[in-house]
Design a protein around this nucleic acid. Structure first.
Lengths: 340, 340
DNA sequence: ATGAAAGCGCTAACAC
DNA sequence: GTGTTAGCGCTTTCAT
């Protein structure tokens, strides 16, 4: 097992000292250009690679950001991560990604791993069942910056980046009214998942604000599997008193709506308006194209990261915790455009 | 700025030595249960966290796996990462995820970062424009294990996990023939992206094997934007000599096919068979449901990780480079089922 | 412009 | 069963 090349090896090869080599490789101003050049040359020749662990140990910190998300393979989160990565990269920071699998237990593990790693900052979106914030306090106690995003704990004072799920539901309802739709129904997602709960609540709040009827049939809860969704939507649309617009909690539900409507001979958007949620690529490929909500997840990631790097620049650590709200945008397409 | 608690602090508080503390925290057998107990107690009390950098420096390695993918926010890759994460987690390994953004330049940066981090192993899926493998050799030179997946360089001998894109195209063609389809066309994706190239080549090979005509119209290349796809598909299906089956290089194209066919009054699957690629969730929600290819990406991630941990267990490092092939599976649905 | 030396926090070989 | 000691590779203060 061949040992890695260290700055000591380079120093020896050039009859210099490790400190000179270290300085040269870090472009320290006191080292002559000539020396720098031969040292860098030798480093390449010996295939030298920095040992980050030694560096971090010595410097008492690392240029690493820890990111904790419930699930990495949900496009919303992976877009956020991609956004974070883009910015972090510009500042030469690395990111370590952990997933909590939406459990509190694993989330604690993630936090500990990242504290052990001595990361500069942790970006977190909380697991569905996270009930305590002791682990978050722990982060702050270890002088590690904390930024929460999307699913946050408001009891702990940190920077936050949020989606305004309420406001967008209001936008959606108002858009439908402008288009002359009167009887609006919401197809909700499973209420144990935070985002679906928020969307449902946002919808109900929007109805209230517009003094629209709040009867039980206005929210259909269980539309998560295809079969049940088909049954529920068929019932909904076959009834005497059928709605003239549906806001679904997720894009995939709109495909079923389109299908059922086609079967029942209900024209979209003339007789039924349809709105989805997430701006999945396919919503632009259906006929009619589907009005939906873009959450700007990539942008959210960038925002989170920028928040950290902005604070880093402010030597005056006044740092009053900021909350940045990302406004999702209603992408109006054919499925709700009956007035041209 | 409060300093972190170290094992030295614990030792001092208990009138013990750092080594005893270290041993106790690592459950070394020589330490009495009583001592272990009070040490662990104290560690919690002082909110001690291990410093991974010190540990890794001292031990000359880390329980960390580096993963390099072209893009993290592509569901295929994020599923793979989720699969890797699941297994790594069982072995108490951490993963550091890097994205090359599909450029060779950034890929080199990623490799260097991971070598600097002294990771135990690197899992990589190569960038589209990676032309050299010097950086891969570099990994091996640093005694870091290397496992390639999906997009690999065959000139370098390492463990590999691959998708059999050829075989699956053969399956698709044969399935169509069984269903009585005769004139099969392929809608290809951009040929500068590896997977689309492979799919197209796989398709052509399948035609050859079945002695089917190989004329130019059998592959439609540019179907990547909605407008062009619509035009091309409309032309394809309006012609006199139209195909009776289409294999698309990606699921999203099948939505356009469904739309165009509906407009032209072509019935699916009776008059036209349609196959997509990726088993995107929505392929199950359309009418008709779409036959597609599942690549088992999550499983691929698990396989990659298991390959590493299996080798780790074998003390006898015979380690002949293995290639594991994941066979994608044709998910037959309504869009190609005309014989019940 | 360069060198000497100490130390970051941890582990492990060697004592006792 | 516990203590002593050295050292992983790097940076940095202080000296020259």
């Amino acid at each position: 097992m061949k040992k890695r090349t260290t700055i000591y090896d380079i120093a020896k090869a050039l009859q210099l000292t490790p400190s000179t080599v270290s300085r040269a490789l870090n472009n320290h101003s006191n080292i002559s250009e000539a020396t720098k050049k031969i040292i860098k040359q030798k480093a390449i020749e010996l295939n030298y690679k920095l040992n980050t662990h030694a560096q971090n140990l010595r410097m008492g910190g690392s240029k690493t950001i820890g990111v904790i998300v419930p699930k990495i393979n949900i496009i919303f989160f992976s877009n956020i991560i991609a956004g974070i990565e883009e910015i972090a990269n510009q500042y030469q920071y690395n990111i370590i990604i952990c997933q909590s699998n939406d459990t509190y237990k694993k989330e604690i593990d993630c936090v500990n791993t990242l504290i052990n790693q001595n990361v500069a900052c942790i970006f977190i979106s909380l697991a569905a069942d996270t009930k305590s914030n002791e682990h978050l306090k722990d982060i702050l106690q270890h002088q590690i910056q904390l930024i929460q995003f999307d699913r946050v704990d408001n009891k702990i004072k940190t920077n936050k980046v949020l989606n305004d799920d309420d406001e967008i539901m209001l936008d959606a309802v108002e858009h439908l009214q402008t288009q002359g739709y009167q009887k609006i129904v919401h197809l909700a997602g499973p209420q144990n998942i935070g985002i679906y709960k928020t969307r449902k609540e946002g919808f109900e709040k929007a109805l209230l604000q517009h003094h629209l009827p709040q009867n039980k049939n206005v929210v259909i809860e269980d539309c998560y599997t295809k079969e049940i969704a088909t049954t529920n939507i068929t019932n909904l649309l076959s009834g005497n008193n059928r709605p003239d617009a549906i806001i679904a909690a997720a894009d995939f539900m709109t495909l079923t709506i389109l299908d059922v409507a086609r079967k029942l001979g209900i024209r979209i958007p003339e007789e039924l308006g349809v709105i989805g949620y997430s701006n999945e690529p396919y919503t632009e490929l259906t006929t009619p194209t589907i009005t939906t909500v873009d959450q700007f997840s990539f942008n959210m990631g960038q925002t989170v990261a920028n928040l950290f790097f902005q604070d880093l620049k402010n030597i005056s650590q006044t740092s009053i915790p900021k909350s940045i709200v990302i406004n999702p945008k209603l992408i109006v397409r054919a499925s709700t455009t009956r007035i041209k």
